[in-house]
Every structure is written in structure tokens, then in C-alpha cells.
Amino acid sequence: MIDSFDPVGFSTIPPPPEGFKSGFVGIVGRPNVGKSTLMNALVGQKVAITSPTAQTTRNRLRGILSTDQAQIIFVDTPGIHKPHHELGKILVKNARMAIDSVDATLFVVDGSAEAGRGDQFVAELLTQSQRPVILGINKIDQQPQAFADLDASYQTLANAQGWPLVKFSALDETGLDTLLQTLIDQLDPGPYYYPPDLVTDQPERFIMGELIREQILLNTREEVPHSVAIAIDRVEEDPHITRILATIHVERDSQKGILIGKKGSMLKTIGSDARQQIQKLVMGQVYLELFVKVVPKWRQSRSRLEDFGYRVED
């Protein structure tokens, strides 16, 4: 089971050893550069959903890593991009706010391609921050043999601001030890903010909804990209099984048809795949029942966005 936020558990926070460091590290960058995959790899458990589709992350999700040297609270943020609707505006504003509310920022870029205008835009935002910044070149496992020019484009970006640069692969975990030590070096001495065995501050219901949304993204790809919100309507637990009732909200009837599929085949596939992931979360048998509901233009409505848990964070 993923250890998630439990206020009672705060009584178990130990005093830090001598020389212990701690702090919040924001993971920022363009959409689809591997930020969520990286956070999962660093904390050692799946706490953020991943997908080939860009802009998968919606909420400012925290993953917690505790070692003998430090406790790092990673803040995974939505990809910074030009927003096209009210939801997009909220997500990008939250990502920008995260830059100013952390102790250090890890700027993640895609090392399989040269630095582009989107990377320059994120870099310009980060120059306005007073916090330390580390430039992380991800996806080195996908770099072509002649990658010197790719690295040079990011080295130029880092040198212009005096940022440390670290290369790694979140997928095969190459270079993560070096990245972790570089991050720890940027932090100040501090306490445990959370119990050492905690890996996220998000409640299980939130993670359940995200695991369902992940399977929608994986199974429908571009057909139903981001017009989906998940509501966990009911969770009933007994010693033998966890029963979950959830509603998938979309914006159009055509999207509902895609999600249900011929004779319910797509919804059955999504439910089966999500159930397997949720069983890993709760470490037990799960019965998952899904419904699909059309809510026109929910991404444009402030009230609807708040109903589904999307709001500008403090």
C-alpha cells in the first residue's frame, strides 16, 4: 500500500540526526519531459501517473523521499505551456506558483532533443526566482549516438545562469544517485517534515482517481486527451475486498461513446487495467465500478473545476 497522508502519523516524526537536511524541491519543465516518471523513480513508488500524452499531471503532487542524509519533498507540477482553456490557466498558474514556494527547483528537459523555445520560456521564468535551480537532462537513454550538440544546447542554457547540470534517465534510473546528491547539496539543514515512511501527502482516494485517469489516457490516447475528470463517489472496505464506485466526467457525447466503446468494451478494459493498479495501492482485492457522465465545457467553468478539485493553490 502507498503510504499517504495521515495527520495522526505526525506523532511518529523523529528528531533529525546531526547534519540532516530537508526541503521542498519543485520539478518543473515543459509537458512530457518525464517529470512524473522521475518523481516515481526517486521516491521508489508510483505516486504520480504517467502517460505518453502531454500535460498528464494536473495537481501539484508531493512525493517524499527520506534518506539518512535528508528528507526531500518533491513537488511534481503540471507542464508549463500556453493554456487554451480555464483548466489550463489554473494548471500553469499553479506550476508558476510552485517555483516561488519551494527551496530549490529541478528544471527537467528532454535530452533526446535540442533545447527549444518552450525550454527557453521555462528558463526565463526560473531566472525570476531567488531559489537555487538545477538543470536536469532526462532521457539520456534515448539520446542518439551523436548527442554532443544536444548537450551543448542545454549546457549553454545552464552556463548562462550558473546552474548545475546533471544528466540522467528516469526510466532506467541511470545517474539518479548523482542527481540526488546534487539536490541534497542545495538544501539547508532542517527537520523531518513528514514521517520517514511516508511517500506522498495525498489521500488514497486521490491516487485511486489518478490511476483511473491514467488508464483512460493510455487506452484512448489522443481520442479523449484531457477532457476527463474522475470523481470517486464511494469506497467501501471490508476484510476481503475494497469496493469502489467512480464517475468519469467528459465534455461531449462523442467522448462518452469512445470511453464506453462497442458493447462496453473500452470501459471494461479501462476498469480492468485500473483495478489492477489500485490493487497494488491497497494491497488487496478490488471491485471497481465505473460510470461515464457528460458535463459540457467543464474545463471552462470555475465552479465545475472546483467541484472536481481543480483550483488555484495557495
Rank of each mutant, 00 (worst) to 15 (best):
G309A: 03
I13L: 04
Q279M: 12
I207M: 07
T156F: 06
D76I: 07
I99K: 02
Q120A: 04
E222M: 08
M266S: 03
K35M: 01
L218N: 08
T105W: 09
R275M: 00
K268R: 13
L198A: 05
R205P: 09
E86K: 11
D141M: 06
K268Y: 12
Q181I: 10
W298Y: 11
G79C: 13
A123F: 00
G111N: 09
K82D: 09
F168R: 11
L38V: 13
G44E: 03
R243C: 06
H85Y: 09
T182H: 00
D119A: 13
D119C: 03
Q181S: 14
Y310C: 06
Q130L: 01
P164L: 08
F147P: 12
G264M: 07
P195F: 13
Q285V: 12
A70W: 08
M39E: 14
Q277F: 04
I73F: 09
M283P: 11
A158G: 05
D141Y: 08
D110P: 10
A246G: 08
I278P: 00
E173T: 08
G257Q: 14
N32C: 06
Q145M: 14
A146S: 13
L259E: 13
K256G: 04
P14V: 05
L281W: 14
G162R: 01
L281I: 07
L87K: 07
V228N: 05
P239K: 11
E237M: 08
A152I: 11
S11W: 11
R311V: 00
L165V: 09
F121I: 12
L267D: 06
L290T: 02
P83L: 02
G309S: 01
R60I: 11
F20V: 10
H240F: 10
I2D: 07
V282A: 07
D119Y: 10
K89G: 13
I64W: 10
Q69Y: 15
P144A: 06
I64G: 00
A158Y: 03
K139H: 09
A115F: 10
Y310L: 08
I80V: 13
F74S: 13
I248M: 05
S4I: 14
R30F: 02
V166I: 08
V122H: 01
D188E: 15
E223F: 02
A146N: 12
F10N: 12
G34A: 08
R30E: 14
Q55I: 02
H226V: 12
Q277W: 14
G19L: 03
A146L: 05
P144N: 01
L42H: 01
D307L: 09
Q285R: 08
L180I: 10
I212R: 07
F74N: 04
S153T: 00
L281R: 06
R131K: 12
G9H: 15
E313V: 15
G309F: 03
L87C: 02
S112R: 09
L125C: 12
P191H: 09
E214P: 07
R62V: 01
I216G: 04
V166F: 07
R62F: 03
G19S: 06
I244L: 11
L165H: 02
A48T: 04
P203Q: 00
I278T: 04
Q142L: 15
E173W: 05
E237Q: 15
G271I: 00
A115N: 06
G9N: 15
S272H: 15
K263H: 14
A231M: 03
M283A: 15
S129N: 11
S303Y: 14
G111R: 10
A148C: 13
L176M: 13
A54I: 15
I90Q: 02
D141V: 09
E289W: 03
